[in-house]
């Protein structure tokens, strides 16, 4: 591969185009153009500068990850956090274990709690109707000690279900905030390969 300034800038641009806004992309590219310009003025070759900068692909991955995490922080949505996690995965195999697996476990946990909440919420009215039928003398399986207890039980179980759903919502918000902080920290620490001279 050619290790020229032009090539470095070309790779960066092609990896970031369409992801970043134009002015931000231009700003980033100008940092590297300046780096090459001053380096060359100091008598270093383009190849030398290219190599000590390291792989432009890694730089692009890091910028993408930062961009998506910031976006997920500014606008909370499932889509944005999903993009942020995906972009962070690109930083290294390492993150399959340290980002993807925790993320999947959390999503499953939140989903299971949500489903449980819904089930309990729906179960309440069902138990209620059941108890009312019993009180009305319509024969049904006697699952309660008394139909009256069944009425209270049904109210309790619906409240519990609603509480679970509400709790799940706050839990999701909490993990979202912690997750963003973790991803930011992660970007600062995890990096890809190093250029060997």
């Amino acid at each position: 591969m050619l290790q020229t300034e032009q090539e470095y800038i070309r790779i960066l641009r092609s990896r970031l185009e369409g992801t970043l806004p134009h002015d931000e992309l231009d700003d980033i590219l100008s940092d590297y153009t300046e780096h090459f310009r001053i380096g060359k003025a100091n008598g270093r070759s383009e190849e030398e500068l290219f190599c000590s900068l390291g792989s432009p692909e890694d730089v692009a991955r890091e910028i993408r990850a930062t961009h998506f995490v910031k976006k997920a922080e500014d606008t909370r949505s499932c889509r944005n956090i999903f993009h942020a996690v995906l972009a962070t995965l690109g930083l290294g195999l390492f993150n399959l274990v340290f980002v993807l697996i925790p993320f999947i476990l959390l999503v499953v946990l939140l989903f299971v709690v949500f489903i449980l909440g819904i089930v309990f919420t729906v179960l309440g009215p069902v138990a209620f109707i059941y108890s009312v039928l019993q009180i009305a003398g319509i024969p049904a399986f006697a699952i309660w000690l008394s139909p009256a207890a069944g009425v209270f039980f049904s109210i309790g179980i619906t409240s519990f279900g609603l509480l679970l759903v509400l709790g799940d919502y706050y839990l999701a918000k909490f993990f979202y905030r912690i997750g963003i902080r973790y991803l930011k920290w992660n970007i600062g620490v995890i990096s890809g390969t190093e250029c060997v001279t």
Binding site: Y32, S52, E62, I63, S191
Partner: peptide, 24 residues
Amino acid sequence: YELVGEISKRIDISEGTIYPLLRR
């Protein structure tokens, strides 16, 4: 360029990653 020089003088690192760090 100066900042990168100051750092890479002492620590061997992919210099390109300093710019994204500066942006952050």
